[in-house]
Computed example of a mutant assay.
Amino acid sequence: MRVGILSTGNIAATMAGTVKQMKEARVCAVASRNLEKAEKFAERFEIPKAYGSYEELAKDEELDVVYVATPMSEHYENVKMLLNHGRNVLCEKSFALNKKQAEEMIHLAEEKGLLLTEAIWVRYMPMWKTLRQVLDCGMIGEPMTATANLCYLIDQVPRLMELKLGGGALLDVGVYVLNFASLVFGNEIESITAKALMTEGGVDAQNSITLTYPGQKMAVLNSSLRVISDRKGVIYGTKGYVIVENINNFESIAVYNRDREQVAFYEQPSQISGYEYEVLACKEALEKGWKECPDMPHAETLRIMAQMDAIREGWGMKYPQER
């Protein structure tokens, strides 16, 4: 599968380095708004074509899929431009700034008959499916409560502190804790309560979200740009509990019974970086003629975007593009 990469930042570099080690795909082109940056990136990862504008890459008909690694504030325009040029797209999380943008992107992909999927990598990983199987087989009885923490010391990253660039903890790391809760309880949410500590620039530096579900079930989620956390997800059931190490890339899943004895343990299989799974999912989708990936269908992307919209509305946090 011939891959193009839009942007030359750190995430783009991880993807390029990953695909370089895969036999199923290769990076054939990279684009930056600065030709020199694109050429340096291309030389670093042995990519044959470097473009000094995004539109040049969009016009490259030899590409099977384009990976969008620009800031979240750019996804809407970048993805639409690519779709209008006939390119299939793998778009980094968060997919868009809000549900309205996401809907427009998805509708355009459907009109054009093109593949469009969100690159929230954990959804495509084998360990995501392993955790689903653990919960479905009843090892911990009925899950009733879940907690998840994902916090990093990243408040020095300029784009994360800029409201106009889609900054804040919610869309960058909070999206992972929301996806974790979705895996455990689904998306039939009865109520959302969320609090945030805001920066002077108007983005959430730290937040805490509580979701309630039918059957008196609850998820308590924390994300932050200013502290280090254990990155754990814990699921409490009627017969035991599960501890997931690193909900951003499940390293292990430990299962405990009602006596707090470990009864099962699952380790992450060897991986290049973890990004390879979303690339393989795109390859399968293109081979089978799918316009979305089953691991992260459009409906799921829209549900998570709607949750983040509701949370930000409660904070009064609007991006300039929404005003």
Rank of each mutant, 00 (worst) to 15 (best):
R2F: 01
S7D: 08
N10S: 14
T14P: 00
M15R: 11
T18L: 05
K23W: 00
R26M: 03
C28T: 13
S32H: 07
S32F: 03
E36R: 07
A38I: 10
A38F: 10
E39R: 15
K40I: 11
K40H: 10
E43V: 09
E43R: 15
R44V: 02
E46Y: 09
E46V: 10
I47K: 09
K49P: 01
A50L: 07
A50C: 05
Y51K: 05
S53G: 01
L57T: 11
L57P: 06
L57Q: 05
D60K: 04
E62G: 15
Y67I: 13
P71F: 03
P71Y: 13
L83R: 04
N84R: 15
N84F: 01
N88T: 12
V89E: 03
C91D: 14
S94M: 14
F95N: 07
F95I: 01
A96Q: 08
L97N: 08
N98C: 09
N98E: 04
K99W: 04
A102N: 03
E104G: 12
M105P: 00
H107Y: 05
L108R: 04
G113Q: 11
G113W: 11
L116Y: 01
I120L: 15
I120T: 12
W121A: 12
Y124T: 06
D136C: 02
G141N: 10
E142D: 11
E142R: 11
P143W: 01
M144I: 13
M144T: 09
T145M: 07
L150C: 08
Y152E: 10
L153S: 03
I154N: 14
Q156S: 12
L160R: 09
L163K: 15
L165I: 00
G166Y: 03
A169Y: 01
Y176P: 02
Y176W: 09
L178F: 04
L178N: 06
N179A: 07
N179D: 15
N179F: 06
N179C: 07
A181Y: 03
A181Q: 00
E188A: 04
S191M: 06
A194S: 15
G201P: 00
I209H: 08
T212I: 03
P214Q: 07
G215Y: 07
A219F: 05
V220C: 11
L221Q: 02
S223P: 02
S223T: 10
S223Q: 07
R226T: 15
I228Q: 12
D230R: 08
R231S: 08
R231N: 13
K232I: 01
T238S: 14
K239D: 13
Y241T: 00
V242C: 13
E245R: 06
N246C: 10
I247T: 03
I247H: 11
N248D: 10
F250D: 04
E251A: 14
Y256D: 08
D259C: 08
R260G: 01
Y266S: 04
E267S: 13
Q268T: 10
S270T: 13
S270N: 11
S273V: 06
S273Q: 14
S273A: 14
Y277C: 01
V279M: 10
V279K: 04
C282V: 12
E284G: 02
A285Y: 07
L286N: 02
L286S: 05
P297D: 13
P297S: 13
P297E: 13
I304P: 06
Q307H: 12
D309L: 04
I311F: 05
W315G: 00
K318R: 13
E322I: 06
